[in-house]
Design a protein around this nucleic acid. Structure first.
Lengths: 250, 250
DNA sequence: TATCATTGTGTCAATTAAACACATTAACTT
DNA sequence: AAGTTAATGTGTTTAATTGACACAATGATA
């Protein structure tokens, strides 16, 4: 969200915010981290204003540290949202007023600019925390998300589009999965992002052909049926392969 | 460039600029439109401040209309540059002072943010025009470009990287070539962007397999040797094909 | 009219992708 | 404790695509 705190705090560029689309993977589903506004109960993307002396990346990192407890999150800037009209009917502003804040007129008249980042996190390691303007921070599956404040749904969709396009160029698997994972899990991740089903055997053959995975001795037990092997990324080869993009369409 | 005009003109957001990497294709080479600064004679990307009531896209469109005379230019936002330090040693500021301008201290202390766009234009239709701070506007081949003011070389390289990555997802051929073009011309464009040579016959086979080209009856005469056919894009199929990306690596 | 360099078209082998079969095995049932 | 179940591991076969080349056709030039 466009965090409205500190609107009279001079250390912030109080019209430039970062909005983060935080992706996680759980229960074979792609999840997004959202905040529920205290007063309007609408959902919003985590975000916040940029400080005067920090880069946008730093601002996004700072915000996400607060929302998830995680350091060194994978971040990718994907678009700036700057429609001059986007601030005119800002539900977050209403929420702010409901909360008793009293920004001056000049603050209302300014233009809000938001830099969109998508973030990839290990679902199991994140600890969702609401901010000053929200009462809940939670993971939502994509199909659960119908409306968001402002243009946040548009931002989310743009992030998804970028995620899909960059699947062969960014370490998406590495950042969304735990260190050890099974081939079916990796496949489900790909299927979810691409929005289509893939042949199990062809997927495995192709994935292994990239030489970016190490198969471990361990297997994942606990689930019913045959226990699948665990894999980890071979980071060196992975990085190298991503330089040219993982060849071939899915 | 970060245009420094209007620094005391309240209709401009005088710390947010758009910088445009304008690509054209000529003599089988990828060209970029650059400005030469009046006083320092350094080269810079065309750009300008954003007006308070216009979107970034509109600002970029406005600037490019001034620099090229062209309307409805293909534009793609690719990154925001916001390092808090980037304004500290700003050659453009020196140029401004040399020119006799006297911005106040507050203006110097602010932070410069630049939104990067790449633009694709039909080289033959552009009419390069310098702005108030430059004495020359000209096309430069990539290998001629060694240094640019500020972080413009970094911006240019980032644009190129994006152009390469999006070659299969954006109407790059359509926007860089004239309406009618030959297969060898299209191939050279691809080779230039990708930075490698391709097999003539395989390229043609693959390109035709997409069904995005109409072969015309005409041939291109005038050059020595056998006259190649002229092609045009089948816009409907082209757009459709780009949705999923032109399949296959090059 | 012969030459030249480039274009139009086609072939073949090697590689890759798509579709599918069968044996293996961890947990659950009874 | 043995049988059942459903998912996993590991192929094979066929079709499609790619990569590497060969050769004829042709527009300008000499």
């Amino acid at each position: 969200m466009d965090q409205i705190s500190n609107f009279n705090d001079r250390q912030y560029l109080n019209h430039i915010s970062v909005d983060c689309v935080v992706f996680g993977f759980h229960d074979n589903q792609l999840k997004v981290l959202l905040l529920r506004m205290k007063f309007t109960k609408e959902w919003a993307l985590p975000g916040g204003f940029v400080k005067e002396d920090e880069s946008f990346e730093t601002a996004a990192t700072r915000v996400l540290k607060e929302r998830t407890g995680l350091d060194s999150i994978f971040l990718k800037q994907f678009k700036v949202f700057s429609d001059p009209q986007r601030s005119k009917t800002n539900p977050a502003v209403q929420d702010l007023i409901d909360s008793g804040a009293k920004p001056d007129q000049e603050w209302f008249d300014q233009r809000f600019i938001s830099v969109g980042y998508y973030a990839l996190v290990d679902f199991s390691k994140a600890d969702p925390q609401p901010d000053n303007f929200s009462d809940l921070c939670a993971w939502k599956s994509l199909n659960e998300i119908n409306t968001l404040i402002l243009d946040h749904l548009q931002i989310l969709n743009k992030a998804l589009e970028n995620l899909r396009m960059q699947l062969n160029y960014q370490p998406i698997g590495y950042n969304l999965l735990p260190e050890k994972f099974t081939m079916p899990e990796l496949q489900k991740l790909y299927e979810t992002i691409l929005g289509k089903e893939l042949d199990r055997r062809n997927f495995q053959r192709k994935m292994l052909s990239y030489n970016i995975l190490n198969r471990l001795e361990e297997r994942k037990t606990g689930g019913a049926h045959k226990a699948p092997f665990l894999y980890e990324f071979n980071l060196e080869n992975y990085q190298k392969a991503l330089q040219n993009g993982l060849y071939g369409g899915w």
